[in-house]
């Protein structure tokens, strides 16, 4: 098992009372369990604000989790210090949504890459070796090697996203978290990036945790899909099963809206019980109950 999340919880304070104590919380991630096997891409889908980005950021420890465990290759990294995290940082990397803000506009592509390389001290001691590795990565993401001296504002969104992917690959990660990584690109470029991601997966033995609201893209790239709603995973199954045979009312609604552009009348408000849990309804098709 590459990554295992056990009972992960993250509440953000929403309102404070007069004395500064927290009155209400936003349950961004509410007791989530998830397993991710190496090589088996998992997508997390759901509407905006359902907590999927928070979940991704909890995994890379941009925020500390309130409770629960994050187990990476058998080691519980939830409460690791900054120094202890160091070997794990290189193994889990992240690509962000907005290609226009994910590269520092003041850095040339060369310095963007170099910054990541400096973190692995001694691995690329000379500038020549650094350059060689950069060129190899640029070739992998299908960009010309002569762009190293240029600044991010000279590239299109798709090109920037390729650069961001290349940067994430510098550290040779095993798990790549793609947080809405293709959402802001136009459809044709999306398609190219997806194809690129699939190629890279073969070449570098990557595993993707793909976070998106775009079901068409999710269908192409992932082996399993987790549907998230109000901080909880409401349905988790192989991609085909979710798309052909959705069980949970929210999944049905989401699929109808996203694939058929058909609004679904919500007959009853979807209520998630306090102690509801994912239950296997047969053949690894988990639905919250």
């Amino acid at each position: 098992m590459l990554l295992e999340l056990k009972n992960i919880k993250k509440y953000f304070p929403a309102r404070k009372d007069f004395f500064g104590g927290t009155k209400e919380y936003v349950r961004a991630v509410d007791r989530v369990d998830l397993q991710l096997r190496a090589g088996e891409n998992l997508s997390i889908v759901g509407e905006s604000g359902c907590g999927k980005t928070t979940l991704a950021r909890l995994i890379v420890k941009l925020y500390p989790a309130d409770s629960g465990e994050i187990i990476f290759e058998g080691q519980d990294i939830t409460r690791f210090s900054f120094a202890q995290m160091k070997p794990f940082r290189s193994r889990v990397q992240m690509v962000f949504q907005d290609p226009y803000s994910s590269l520092d506009p003041r850095f040339t592509i060369f310095s963007v890459f170099q910054e990541a390389m400096h973190l692995e001290q001694g691995r690329y001691p000379s500038v020549d070796e650094q350059k060689k590795r950069m060129e190899e990565l640029l070739e992998a993401v299908q960009l010309p090697a002569d762009i190293l001296g240029r600044y991010p504002h000279e590239f299109s969104g798709g090109e920037r996203q390729r650069i961001a992917i290349a940067r994430a690959l510098i550290m040779n990660p095993q798990l790549l978290i793609l947080d809405e990584a293709v959402s802001s690109l136009d459809v044709l470029v999306q398609e190219q990036i997806i194809q690129l991601l699939l190629d890279l997966q073969k070449r570098y033995q990557l595993t993707y945790l793909f976070i998106s609201h775009n079901l068409r893209v999710v269908r192409r790239i992932s082996a399993r899909v987790a549907v998230m709603y109000k901080g909880k995973i409401v349905e988790l199954a192989a991609t085909g099963k979710v798309f052909k045979n959705p069980q949970h009312p929210y999944t049905k609604e989401l699929l109808a809206a996203a694939l058929d552009y058909r609004p679904v009348k919500r007959t009853t408000e979807i209520v998630l019980g306090e102690n509801s849990q994912l239950v296997d309804t047969g053949g690894g098709h988990f639905v919250i109950q």
């Binding site: 890379v60 994910s102 961001a164």
Partner: peptide, 21 residues
């Protein structure tokens, strides 16, 4: 900004991030 988040994910120290980004 996402480049700051990316730097954090890569494991740059807080001081370096403040100084460089």
């Amino acid at each position: 900004r996402e480049y700051v988040l990316a730097a954090k994910v890569m494991g740059l120290s807080d001081f370096t991030i403040i100084r460089k980004h």
